[in-house]
Amino acid sequence: MIELVRVSQKYTYKEVLKDVTFTAEKGQITCLLGLNGAGKSTILKTIMGLTPIHGGSIRIDGEEINQNTYERVSYIPDHLAIPASMKLSDALRFMEDFYSCWNKDRANELMRFFDLDLDERAGRLSKGTAAKFNLVLGLAQDSDYVIMDEPFAGIDLFNRERIAEVFSSELVGNRGVLLTTHEVKEVEYLIDKAVLLRDGVVARSFECEQVRSEESKSVVDVMKEVLLT
């Protein structure tokens, strides 16, 4: 379980996050929803220790962030963070070099699934292909959690479907997934739980099926209700 308790962050006196509290369970898909600038990516970065927090705590299965966190939580940032000159095969070897949780077979399977060319250089990939390769790097780790920042941003329709397929497939399996997006439609039926953020504050967090059955509202309905009023 990824657990954030009253996490706050300031950036030169401006509060970016304020008392953010939510959990993302293993075996569930949790989605951070919010408008641009609501602090979605920042939350993911705080979980990965990529930006400091100024209050509250973040625990992963009860442990504070340490170097082992990165073996248990794989992070898929919103861009492909691999030097442009690197070949994809080199990038895979680089990952294998550093991550003891790297699953080579799964990496190969994913490369086939997304139909990626090992000899291509990272800098020459199209946006959609780069996003797919980015998923390969994150999902080929035998991690307990996968964190994805805007996996659909700027991706064409065909590739979006291909990426969406991943969530319900064995490639994600029983891991916990935490993702951010501002395009709810892609994930509406995929997510277990939604956490709505507005200006760095958790406006509401809910189980999607529960809202549908108890309030007969769609995720989008709740979002509109919460964020636009």
């Binding site: 075996g27 397929e165 319900s168 497939s169 064995e170 039926y189 995929l190 997510i191």
Partner: peptide
Amino acid sequence: RRELAALLKINPNTAQR
């Protein structure tokens, strides 16, 4: 369950339910 989730592009937990 997982196959169905993948086929329908829905959450595996939903398929399970």
